[in-house]
Design a protein around this nucleic acid. Structure first.
Lengths: 194, 194, 194, 194
DNA sequence: CATGAATGAGAGTTCATTCAT
DNA sequence: GATGAATGAACTCTCATTCAT
């Protein structure tokens, strides 16, 4: 594939990404993508055979771009507790859709798709989150900031709560206060109870 | 509306319910409903204008029928801890789709629908769950079975975890062991640490 | 299916028949049929799923309507020789496309289709022709009009020649004289010699 | 046109020939040819404007290459009867598609094309066949092997039967025995009687 | 010459929705 | 009320054909 083709494919993916953010997954048609990209019907088919194929590429891009935010801050002299707070703050933003996100489209997609586990972005994000939190908890315990008997279990618990919150936000009104309350509850459970 | 009409409407709702269980919400067309009901196209439109309208009636029925299971057991001499365990076991069944359920369809529906809070079944189920668990925790605390500082917070936490698990089960492979592990983690957090 | 439906289906088949006569089989699209019938796109799909399906119905009709012409004349006091001449005259008309026919469409269709022998109109017509000619030859031999050692073989030979002529007419210029010449050749081979 | 161009054009024709043998004429698209040749879309258009144009070149090549087989054997001391038998054996192979052939594609093509008689391969092959058989019959009659009153008529008759058989084979199941039977019938008609 | 990306016309198909009966 | 035939909009997908490079 030529350089130009790569550029165009990327352009399509990025443009389609916005469409998926707006309309979710199922609602989006090839026509929608064609129109938002300003290309021809046939042109799109040169690159992708279905909306699912486009979406999968969107997800791949998503995956590559993620993780960065977090890594940037871990090098500071921030304490584990600070970092966890930061992590949760980021999650809160996503939960509340402060930044428009693909969440809904992703859920719609994975509700139906039979995706091999290794390609399942949701699973990857979840596992990644668990791993990060677990390390933070361990680090925090060494420093005496945190206390918990089962760091991995706690990490998983946190990730499930976050996932629950995300879904709650997508499916019904969820106030910022409600999210804060949950995050606070989580943090309190971790604070070393002297 | 005549008696016969009511019967027919009910028949449609119950038949459509099964269709939604199989195919989710978005996938279902008026045609699907017409065919599964064995009625005429025009006939369906006499009662419902869209799949959403049918689904909303399915949800109403769902709401009326729920809560029963739980009430039946609360009257026994079971301890709060037993009842909570039972509740979680029920939830586990639903999470793992042991009994075919509307979950997926419901999530698909609420992902898109702008539904007034008071009619939002997901919210109601969530709030109902919180209320029940909170009462159980309080009762358990009185009996010395449980210990927690913030029963309502704990109840909410549990419900969010359960919601997270449900979503996880719908969107990726989730083993029974993984669900058990989470439930165990929850229960352990509640056991009075002497 | 209601009476009206049957009428309409028949109308579609008959209208489509003309289209197939004009354009052959492959060239014809669902759109062509829709337009020539003056019905809606969806309307056609109520009755037929593809041009092949329409064509198969056209063929069925064809089959039912055929044979008649021949039967009408066999009761007369015509001699076998007269009847054979009449038969060949009919064939000549078809060969030369004096009456517009489905021949081309039929050949196009059967070139590609894997059709069970029992439904194969071409085979049926061929076998029917062989049967009729054989009987005529036998009758003619009894009357001393014809002479041939292997009536069935002769009948088959005649039918293959006619099929060859048909194809020749469809694929290249074929003069009426050329057809006459062949028919004459056939008849001469049957005349009781000396 | 440069030498290279000629080579390429020839390459395209030969490759396309195989495609036409597999798929017939109508089914083949410019895309098919492009892909089987492994050349660019634009590249093909430099040489040919349509599949028909390609096919016409395939036919020309076909014409140049034909006749060879027959000529090779006529120089031997074989008798006319032997040669005719050989000729019919070759025809039988083609009829039964023992060797994959262009027959079907050719018929499809000529069903539609308005082709000037002088370029019509089918006509040429037919006329060529008639000419050869007629000569054989005459030679055979001189040697006393054959007897027939109208050698040209007989030759034409044979060619029409062969054409009929070819079509029969393409459009319905035709057993080898059936072909043998017809060939035998033809030969018997030619054998000098008594 | 040769490439292959791009275009757009057009075929196929499905459904929500209407309406005469 | 109930039916189901009919409509037409909307989508998917495929190609012949062109054209900048």
């Amino acid at each position: 594939m030529s350089d130009k083709s790569v550029q165009k494919q990327k352009y399509i993916i990025e443009t389609a990404r916005k469409v998926f953010m707006e309309k979710g997954f199922k609602e989006v048609t090839m026509k929608d993508i064609v129109e938002s990209c300003g290309i021809s019907r046939g042109g799109l088919y040169l690159y992708f055979q279905s909306t699912a194929e486009v979406f999968e590429e969107v997800l791949k891009l998503e995956q590559e771009d993620s993780g960065d935010v977090f890594d940037r801050n871990i090098s500071n002299e921030a304490t584990p507790s600070d970092i966890l707070a930061l992590f949760l703050k980021e999650q809160k933003k996503e939960i509340l859709n402060k930044k428009p996100s693909l969440s809904m489209a992703i859920y719609e997609y994975f509700f139906r798709a039979k995706v091999p586990a290794k390609d399942n972005l949701l699973k990857k994000q979840f596992d990644g989150g668990v791993y990060v939190i677990e390390r933070l908890l361990q680090a925090g315990m060494e420093k005496g900031e945190f206390y918990c008997e089962d760091p991995r279990g706690a990490a998983r618990n946190i990730m499930y709560v976050l996932e629950g919150l995300k879904i709650a936000a997508q499916t019904r009104k969820l106030s910022e206060a409600a999210v804060d309350r949950e995050i606070l509850y989580i943090m309190q459970g971790l604070i070393a109870e002297e």
